[in-house]
Amino acid sequence: MIIEHVAIWTAQLEALKDYYIQYFGAQANDKYTNVQKQFQSYFLSFASGARLELMSRPDIPANANDPISAQYLGLIHLAFGVDTMAEVEAKAAELRAAGFPILSGPRKTGDGYYEFETLDPDNNRLEVSAVAE
């Protein structure tokens, strides 16, 4: 069994789609729109076969969690894997230069990875990691 996709509600559908295309190599399908429900979405596909559904509807409330310092029960981050520690470093530098916060790292973890944490434009936590060399 596989996880088919993960879905994220967003108030800025186009910006979030563009972020994952630009910084993580996603490919977007054509936008789906249901006018009656005021619902719009994109499925983003990644080279690994993983998919991310970005969804927008005007009546969805904002998330009240503090994205930078708070940890809470439930889904906490999306993790992207790269092949080398140098790729982790390069992605962290690219995102930092583009104005996205680096919350921690890059660093070696106790379980054998090299990683950093950041936030996407909607303040969803992301992790980029590689097996430590």
Rank of each mutant, 00 (worst) to 15 (best):
M1K: 09
I3V: 15
H5S: 10
H5Y: 13
A7D: 05
T10Y: 02
A11R: 12
A11K: 11
A11S: 08
Q12N: 09
A15G: 05
L16W: 00
Y19Q: 07
Y20W: 00
Y20R: 02
I21W: 07
Q22G: 08
Y23K: 07
Y23W: 07
G25V: 08
A26W: 04
Q27M: 11
A28E: 05
N29F: 04
N29E: 13
V35G: 00
Q36N: 15
K37R: 14
K37A: 15
K37L: 14
Q38V: 00
F39C: 05
F39A: 06
S41Q: 08
F43L: 12
F43Q: 08
S45A: 15
A47L: 11
S48F: 07
G49Q: 11
A50D: 13
A50M: 08
R51G: 04
L52K: 05
E53S: 09
E53M: 12
L54K: 04
S56W: 00
D59N: 13
I60K: 15
I60F: 12
P61C: 09
P61S: 10
A64E: 14
N65A: 15
N65H: 15
D66K: 14
I68W: 09
I68A: 12
A70S: 13
A70T: 15
L73T: 09
A79C: 13
V82Q: 04
D83K: 11
D83W: 08
T84W: 02
M85I: 08
A86S: 08
A86Q: 12
E87S: 03
E87A: 02
A90D: 04
A92G: 01
A92W: 01
E94V: 01
E94T: 03
R96G: 00
R96K: 05
R96C: 00
G99D: 03
F100S: 00
P101M: 01
P101G: 01
P101A: 00
I102Q: 01
G105N: 03
P106F: 06
P106V: 01
Y113I: 15
N124P: 03
N124I: 14
N124T: 13
L126E: 05
A132K: 10
E133P: 11
